[in-house]
């Protein structure tokens, strides 16, 4: 059903959001126009400003409108530990867990030859330069436990091994979730949990 050009355009635009289909886009559009024009205006300004000004942190490449993000600019953070993640959302997840005090580097993806993503495309040259500049002692690779994530982790480990043998490169452990029952864990996860087993 078609309303008017501007309303149709709004509905169509809202559908670019994840999880928003035709029906919910319609509901959102009418909610904003009928009940919350002030909220709608704020939303449109916030969107315009964010899209215009948010870029990548010069050091860790996470999303920020500052030249250095808050984490990189915080002198309390331990510069000797650097954690490599695939996405800015991963930074957030680790920060919310609250146990890591070091700094981050965001790849914005993983090695994926079929998609044309090689070492250059995911910023591994910049990572190498950053490791040297910051005097990193431990590099923690927290890419996803997929084949591509593992291949990326292995690449980073080999890259740094040739650069400076005194840098410890570690991989976050993955396996059986806390509170989970073995019976319900999938085979791949169990295989990794066994491969990464620890001596008691």
């Amino acid at each position: 059903m078609s309303f008017s050009p501007l309303i149709d355009q709004l509905i169509a635009s809202l559908r670019c959001l994840p999880g928003v289909g035709a029906r919910s886009a319609q509901r959102m559009a009418f909610h904003l126009l009928e009940r919350d024009r002030e909220g709608a205006l704020k939303l449109s300004q916030a969107l315009a400003q964010a899209v215009e000004r948010v870029g990548h942190c010069q050091r860790c490449r996470t999303l920020t409108e500052l030249s250095l993000c808050k984490l990189c600019d915080n002198p309390e953070r331990d510069a000797s530990q650097l954690c490599v993640v695939e996405t800015p959302a991963d930074v957030l997840a680790i920060e919310q867990a609250g146990s890591f005090q070091g700094r981050y580097f965001v790849l914005h993806g993983h090695l994926s030859p079929i998609d044309g993503l090689g070492p250059e495309e995911i910023g591994l040259g910049e990572l190498e330069a950053l490791v040297q500049e910051m005097g990193v002692k431990e590099l923690i690779v927290a890419t996803n436990p997929t084949v591509e994530g593992e291949a990326t982790a292995h690449y980073i480990a080999e890259q740094l091994r040739g650069l400076d043998d005194s840098i410890a490169v570690s991989r976050i452990a993955h396996g059986v979730p806390l509170g989970g029952e073995l019976e319900y864990v999938d085979g791949g996860t169990l295989a990794h949990a066994f491969a990464g087993r620890k001596r008691l």
Partner: peptide, 13 residues
């Protein structure tokens, strides 16, 4: 060219 060939250029490899 095949992209995956570039993986084998890691320094330690």
């Amino acid at each position: 060219p095949l992209q995956s060939r570039s993986l084998f250029n890691a320094r330690g490899a």
